[in-house]
Design a protein around this nucleic acid. Structure first.
Lengths: 344, 344
DNA sequence: AGGTTTGCAGAAAACGTTTTCTTAATTATG
DNA sequence: CATAATTAAGAAAACGTTTTCTGCAAACCT
């Protein structure tokens, strides 16, 4: 059943049916009513591929993430999808596992489906592979990529704000031996978090002991391994800041096994503030990077680019703040006396 | 840039280009080589919507799940997507939150995109809304829906196997006051799990105290609430079996706050065996329902239906087994003596 | 009243492929 | 060697829409 069938039964041309469906105002109410009633009656749904073909608009956005099984991403996907549906867009989702081969295949498939834009939320693994997309003038939005280029927008995460709060929070609790477990350092975002940590330490005159900075991989297991490594090292940290929440949860898991009590013997801070952070024991203090907000920014960046009729010379830069949210995984350094007492 | 451009430059007809791309064997190697080199040179990617339009095959499957933020689903999505890509299919993903309105919109969008099949993994919220799909003869695969119908396959979960193991495991540890926290009972799957529990209890002559069966909602918070309700009740359970892992994790969280030690004071068993179950403290004993396997079954069911040239009168029924996996959240009833001692 | 807008709706072209139909050239057959 | 069968590749139709182009009638101006 197609538009011609509708046209025939409503005794109008296919053009009129098309105009009716698309609510073009020039079609007279009488005809429109007739057309709609036939459409209802036959349960006709227009064929999107035919529409896309002639109109040149697929109404599809691509969404590239690292791993859907990483709890950081599902909420982003959820929000992105919800907004997309509201705007009558469909989304083509791919987890690439940060694997260049899979990224390439994803990009290719998206081009073949003629997506109108792609949000790349892999936090720093893009660059190389996306030439094809740029070449085809597909609007893109990245996280943490350099300065905006034509049709390429950027969401800059203000890591420093939240991480500084975290470091200062620990310092205020008298911690000085503060460890940092990084993410995989080939990710720009992981590098940026590490830099923000180092800088925050320096700002308040604390030495960031290189032996207390170890590399993780943003997974729970990676967090466990990294913490084991810290425990085996020469300096025992009293607090550990992690590049993401899964890492922090790994640390909590491992320290439980090692009989280290949180927050009594060790303070732990995560990053991302995924939902699960509220539910671990004890609830995890974390630097929040709002996932819904990130999804919204990414979608709107694409939409703005698509709907712009005068193409801007460059994409827009958006900024996402980060903020510390206090829970129960941090505490006063064991054995630290209160300042008042110290002064006496 | 389109197929005609390629044809012109390779000095062949568009038909030949099309045949080359689709690896139709009748095209001579010499021509094929010429065509491919032009394709490479120009970086040409075929337009999927044009292909779909004329061939009548969209190479898209729909995947409807309850909530992507529920940790049970991401792994399913992951595996489903991976297999789909291998078969050159794309997937249209929707979380419906079990909301009929969202389900309806999802179905409509999928029909408009002319999906070739839809996997509905909502575990028992389908029925009503899918008439449209059935009407259009779209192959479907459900979980836990009744007997197979034309073009509708079914994955039957063998709940009893795993739940019986769980109940018998608890019984073997001398538990008798075994509570059960259900899922939302409007889900058929939740009902089925509850029934399997009741039956397993009965089989071994244990009374399932109705006061120990409370309704949860398959969320962590729901688990906390349900357990609180149990604690406030007249009978204190020594073990609790949960309709899914998130519920069980909620119970663990709540019992920690209430100073109840697991497994010393309380044994807890989950259902699903999501990855997180291994990482909670203590690691959660759970009834495994393999998510990768489920995803594979669902995809293959659709693929089989699509590739069948003689349409079978009915869809196929697949069965997914469940099995208990032991970890550390279950233990001998406090105060129970060993059987040998008892007999002395 | 005669010409010029304006408004509505149909006819037909276009979108980029696949696929069917045709044709020309080659190979097999008696 | 003539004819039939086979093969390779081009021409053209088809897929289901949107959109441009046309045409006609009604409304508007001097």
């Amino acid at each position: 059943m197609d538009i011609r069938e509708i046209a025939k039964r409503a005794k109008v041309s296919t053009a009129t049916v098309s105009r009716t469906i698309n609510r073009v105002p020039t079609v007279s109410p009488a005809l429109a009513k007739r057309v709609w009633s036939v459409i209802e009656e036959l349960g006709y749904y227009p064929n999107t591929q035919a529409r896309a073909l002639v109109s040149g608009r697929s109404r599809i956005f691509g969404l590239i993430i690292s791993e859907i099984t990483n709890p950081f991403f599902p909420e982003i996907v959820q929000v992105f999808e919800t907004i997309a549906v509201q705007h009558r867009y469909e989304i083509l989702l791919t987890s690439t596992g940060n694997d260049p081969a899979r990224m390439e295949s994803a990009v290719r498939r998206m081009i073949e489906r003629r997506v109108e834009g792609v949000a790349i939320l892999t936090f720093g693994m893009e660059e190389v592979l996306l030439e094809d997309l740029k070449l085809r003038k597909v609007p893109l939005v990245f996280v943490d990529v350099g300065p905006p280029r034509p049709r390429v927008s950027n969401i800059r995460i203000d890591y420093l704000n939240g991480i500084r709060q975290a470091v200062q929070h620990l310092a205020a609790l008298r911690h000085e031996k503060i460890a940092f477990i990084t993410g995989p350092l080939r990710l720009k975002s992981a590098m940026a978090r590490k830099q923000a940590f180092l800088r925050s330490m320096q700002e308040i005159g604390l030495e960031a002991d290189p032996r207390l900075v170890v590399e993780g991989d943003h997974t729970l297991e990676g967090g466990m391994a990294a913490f084991t490594q810290l425990l085996a090292g020469p300096v025992r940290p009293t607090a550990v800041l992690c590049s993401n929440d899964m890492t922090a949860i790994g640390v909590m898991r491992e320290s439980h096994d090692a009989g280290i009590s949180i927050p009594r013997d060790l303070s732990v801070i995560g990053f991302d503030d995924i939902r699960l952070a509220q539910f671990v024991i004890p609830p995890l203090t974390s630097v929040q990077m709002s996932q819904p907000e990130l999804a919204r920014l990414a979608f709107n960046a694409l939409l703005a680019e698509v709907e712009r009729d005068v193409p801007a010379p460059n994409g827009t830069e958006y900024v996402l703040k980060t903020n510390l949210v206090l829970r129960e995984s941090t505490g006063l350094l064991a054995g630290a006396s209160k300042p008042a007492e110290k002064q006496q």
